[in-house]
Amino acid sequence: MDSEKSVETDVHPQIQAQSMKILFVEMGVGYDQHGQDITAAAMRACRDAISSNSIPAFRTGAVPGVNTDQMKLKIKLGVPRSTQGSLDTERVKSIFPYGDIIDVEVVDGGLVCSSGVCLEAMGDKNDDCYIVNAAVYVGY
């Protein structure tokens, strides 16, 4: 019981305030090397976070009374400040197959770097590559 209490107190206060019991946190990184689309990079980061996980607890009754209808998600994205204005969070949310998304938080993070090449045929305006970090909190 003591270990349960310490886990709850270690959870970031903003997440606790959402009255969400967190089961786990998935993390991912997404890139957009051509086209300079920060939303594409954010969607890839979220897909990366959830793509190698299975959540049988929500389907098998491992947590009594909890199924995918009660699943809650909180998404935190580290996005370069210069690109945040063009981020489409509704498109990012669309990649999650189920769960009630209670919050999408965008913070300064990620990276803008050179991809080393500008390919107009791929929609490039310059050689910028966008990198986004994602943390997906899953609970109920």
Rank of each mutant, 00 (worst) to 15 (best):
L73A: 10
D37C: 03
D48Q: 08
P13C: 06
I15F: 09
D10W: 09
M43E: 10
I75K: 01
M1H: 09
A40M: 05
F24T: 11
Q36M: 07
S51L: 12
V63T: 05
K74T: 04
V11P: 06
N53L: 11
E90I: 02
P97G: 08
E4A: 15
S52G: 14
S6V: 15
D100K: 14
I22S: 00
H12K: 09
K74Q: 05
P64G: 13
K74N: 06
Q70M: 15
P97Q: 09
T39W: 00
G99Q: 05
N67G: 15
V29P: 01
D88I: 00
T89L: 01
D69P: 12
T39G: 03
P13W: 09
E8M: 12
S82K: 05
M27I: 06
R91F: 09
M1K: 11
G30N: 08
Q16V: 15
T83E: 14
D88Q: 04
L77R: 03
I38T: 00
R47W: 12
S3Y: 11
M20Y: 01
G65Y: 14
K93Q: 02
S6T: 14
E4I: 14
D88C: 01
R44H: 11
V11R: 07
V63C: 04
A62H: 11
F24K: 02
E8P: 12
I95Y: 01
A49V: 01
E26L: 02
V66D: 10
V66Y: 07
D88R: 05
P64I: 10
I15P: 15
T9E: 12
